[in-house]
Each structure stands twice: as structure tokens, then as C-alpha cells.
Design a binder for these strands. Structure first.
Lengths: 205, 205
DNA sequence: CATCGAGACTTGACACCGTCAAGTTAAATT
DNA sequence: AATTTAACTTGACGGTGTCAAGTCTCGATG
């Protein structure tokens, strides 16, 4: 519990409640999974009453959006870190970025699940400043992948088709195999590593 | 409302409540999206009290599992229907089955989302007979895709690597683009059709 | 420095949710 | 016909998100 949390326990002025709620949300999901995230639990962990978040977030949907924005920032950083360790040629960069994609989906499974859960149809319910932040951060993390795919695009194919193919494949793999989850249906035998799968695609690019 | 529903409104014996609850769940999601699905709403639509489902399903998790099993049956049928209309060569069959995969994800978006939401870690809470049905139906729908990929597997690659690659790609595409959802981040310009994307992969197989 | 207004909370209540316990009604069995 | 079992209903509880009204703190102003 931070100094601000302790202050909140005494008074009506937390000091940095917005950030504390986001941090609480990230911690709760890390510990108990993506479905454990609730507004009241975040408020309790931040040391305030259940209605306090309303001043910072227009409902649970806005708090989740802020957490997802934070997730995209960590996501982009994870992919960039892998790219920084790889050779500069386009293929090595793409492989590294995909490895970062999968690393994030495994290490932060609950956050990844939250980030890619079905989007509410009406984004207008989200606090405008939070939505702007989310769009910015999501664009940033997606841009890492897009940039890595650019060298492989060609006038011979539909625009963006390589980035769509790569994103579909790595995202599908992350969703389906990113964690040794209990599954109702699965391929028999061990799942091949994505580094084996990706070349099936990229050799043709 | 069926005859059985009307019977339930009068008495303590619905007649086919199990099926009515599953049907209610499918309808509610179709109308109001995947997050609108609740046990009480299903019970109300089936014309019984909120606690009636407990006799057939051990909690909301079991009712959802039953709905998901139904979803897999429709899913498999959709892919098989596409395959039935296609030429018998392996490539045409694979393309048709992927088209069926995407058709299902678009036409039954909420059901698709429910089917591939993060799985609860503890499946033992699910009614055993329901879990068995789910495993069977999920295995059946997955088997359609697996069978279509078999002609492309090779001793030169890791076992199952083609089916993993294809499943990752088509599932990722379905999750990301299967509906013109509101998205925080997206490629610029129109999304290439999956029939353009798939050949990037399959030409190399 | 005192006052006022806005910001940042707290308390309480409501409806909805899933689950459980106890009770009631109908069907099946003996 | 009586008994047992199945299939419900009713009511309650705790957790959830949201709203309204109230309270406390901070910042602005004179």
C-alpha cells in the first residue's frame, strides 16, 4: 500500500487514485485471473470506497479500458525488447516481434485475455480521455507489428495482406496455445513451437 | 413459447426444460450479444423460476458448456456444408472449410465469442454429462479442420504443424476480423478477404 | 486569513446476478 | 392408493455495478 493509499484511508483525498485503481486491476488479474477483476475489488485494494472510482472512470468499462491501454503499453515494450535483441534484417525482426507477442500472451495471460475480449459495441460509454489513451496505446502496439511486416508487402498482393496474415497467425496461436489451458478440443501430441509454424508462412512471402 | 413452456407456467413439470434453456441461451445471445447471457434470463425465457435450471445444470458454467457444445455442433455442420459444395481436391476442401469457419464466426458472432472465451481453469465444476458432451462436440468440430489439413502434413515438418498453422491463422482472422467490430487498433484500409490471405500460407505447404 | 466553490471522496440504496436451502407439486414406482 | 423421487418454486444471501445524497479536502478568490 502506497503513501497515497494510506492517506486515502484517513481522508477524502487519495492523491493518485486513478493510477492506484489501474495498478490494483493489474495485480488482481495477475493473481486471480481475468474474471476476478471487479470495480469494487479494485477500489478496496486501493483503499477507497466502492463509489470512489466514479470520479475517475465512467463505470467499470472505462476502468477496464484504462487497464487495457496500460496493457498495450507493456505489450509494445515486450515486442520492442525482443526486437532490440535480434539481428536487424527484416526476417529476424519479424520473428523477434512475434516471439514478443507470444511472450506477452503467456506472461500476462489474464491481461491479454482482457485486452482481446469481445469489445463492447458502444464505445461512447467510455470516458473520452480514456478512450483516446486506449486508441493511442493500441495503435502503438499494433504499429510494432505493422512496421515489422512492411518489408514483406508487395505490389503483387493486396495491400496489408502480409500484416493481416501474420497478425492472424500469431494472434490465433496466442489465443489458442498461448497458455497450457484446459481445452475441449486440441491437436493430438505436443503443440509445435510458433517458431516452427511461422516459417510455413514467411518462406512464401 | 412451446407447449412445454406453457405447461411449466402452470405446473412443476416443464417437460423439456433442459433443451428450452439451451435454446433460450442461444436466442438471448443472438439478440443481445454474448454478455447478455445469464442464468436468470434463460430461466425466465423458458418460463420457469430462477432456480429451476439447477436440476439440469450445475450452475451457469454448466449451462454455458451445454450451449457451447451446441455451438460446436452448428459449427461443424457449417464447415461440412461448405465442404460439401466444394471440389474434392485437398486445397479446395481446406479453403471451403476455412470459409465455413469464418461464416460461422460472422453469422453467430456472440456464440463464437462464448465458445472461445477464456476457459475456466476448473472444469470439474461442470456437470459431468455436459462436459462429456462438450468434449465430444468440440472434438467433432475440430476434427473437421484436422481432417482437411491431413493431406498437407509431411515427414519434413513437425507433426501437426500444418493444422496448427492453419487453425492459428483462420482462428486469429475470425477473432480479429470476423465481424466489423469497433476496434481500438486496426490495419489501415480494407481488410483483405481471408481467401487472399490463406494462399500466402498454403502455397508453401 | 476567511470564505466559497469545486474536487474527491463516503454512505446508503437499488436492481441484477449466481447460488443455496427449504418447501411444494407432479410423476414414477411399488 | 401410498410412497418415493423428480422437478420444480419461493425466499434469502452475498457480490456486483450504478446512482443519489451527503461529507470532507483542496484550490481559488477577495
Amino acid at each position: 500500500m502506497t503513501q497515497a493509499d494510506m492517506t486515502a484511508k484517513k481522508n477524502h483525498h487519495h492523491g493518485d487514485l486513478r493510477e492506484a485503481l489501474i495498478t490494483a486491476g493489474l495485480e488482481i488479474m495477475e493473481e486471480s485471473g481475468f474474471e476476478a477483476l471487479t470495480l469494487r475489488k479494485c477500489a478496496a485494494r486501493a483503499g477507497v470506497s466502492h463509489a470512489a472510482p466514479a470520479h475517475h472512470f465512467h463505470g467499470i468499462i472505462s476502468l477496464k479500458a484504462a487497464i487495457i491501454a496500460r496493457g498495450h503499453r507493456i505489450f509494445a515494450a515486450t515486442m520492442r525488447a525482443r526486437a532490440a535483441d535480434a539481428l536487424p534484417d527484416p526476417m529476424a525482426q519479424l520473428c523477434a516481434i512475434c516471439a514478443g507477442y507470444l511472450e506477452f500472451s503467456e506472461k500476462h495471460r489474464a491481461l491479454f485475455q482482457l485486452m482481446f475480449q469481445p469489445t463492447p459495441r458502444d464505445l461512447s460509454a467510455i470516458t473520452p480521455s480514456v478512450l483516446e489513451e486506449l486508441m493511442f496505446e493500441a495503435g502503438g502496439s499494433y504499429g510494432v507489428l505493422r512496421t515489422a511486416c512492411e518489408p514483406f508487402e508487395s505490389d503483387k498482393r493486396a495491400p496489408n495482406s502480409v500484416e493481416i496474415a501474420v497478425w492472424s497467425m500469431v494472434h490465433g496461436y496466442a489465443m489458442l496455445f498461448g497458455e497450457t489451458e484446459t481445452r475441449e478440443a486440441a491437436p493430438t501430441g505436443p503443440i509445435p513451437d510458433f517458431s516452427i509454424i511461422l516459417p510455413i508462412l514467411t518462406l512464401q512471402i
